[in-house]
């Protein structure tokens, strides 16, 4: 356990700092923006697509489990990213038009 922590201390620092930053960054959001912000954050966690790409790209030719699941992961991850950003943009477009 201790070995694991010291081997990954960089990551752990990032985790801690990001927790505080995440809270700080959206601390004063007006309630009208709650929904677009949720949607935008939803698109950002689509960064999980990177993991899917790595899984896919490392899958050996004969490993069908990895190939199929990896492919599925890439598709789903992309839907998350692309759909998330487009939907957020559409929502915010509405807000802009009115002003």
């Amino acid at each position: 356990m201790l070995n694991w922590i010291s081997a990954h201390q960089q990551m752990i620092y990032i985790v801690i700092l990001m927790i505080f930053l995440g809270i700080e960054v959206i601390g004063r959001v007006p309630s009208v923006l709650h929904t677009p912000l949720m949607s935008g954050a939803n698109a950002i966690h689509g960064v999980v697509i990177i993991g899917a790409i790595i899984v896919m790209g490392k899958a050996e030719d004969g490993n069908y489990l990895a190939l199929i699941l990896g492919f599925l992961a890439v598709v789903l991850g992309t839907i998350n990213v692309v759909g998330g950003f487009v939907v957020t943009d559409r929502m915010l477009e509405m807000f802009k038009k009115k002003k």
Partner: peptide, 17 residues
């Protein structure tokens, strides 16, 4: 680090939201 940053950032911001 990009996955970590993005993920935790959304995790924290999402909880607060």
């Amino acid at each position: 680090k990009a996955m970590l940053t993005g993920g935790i950032l959304v995790g924290a911001a999402g909880t607060l939201l």
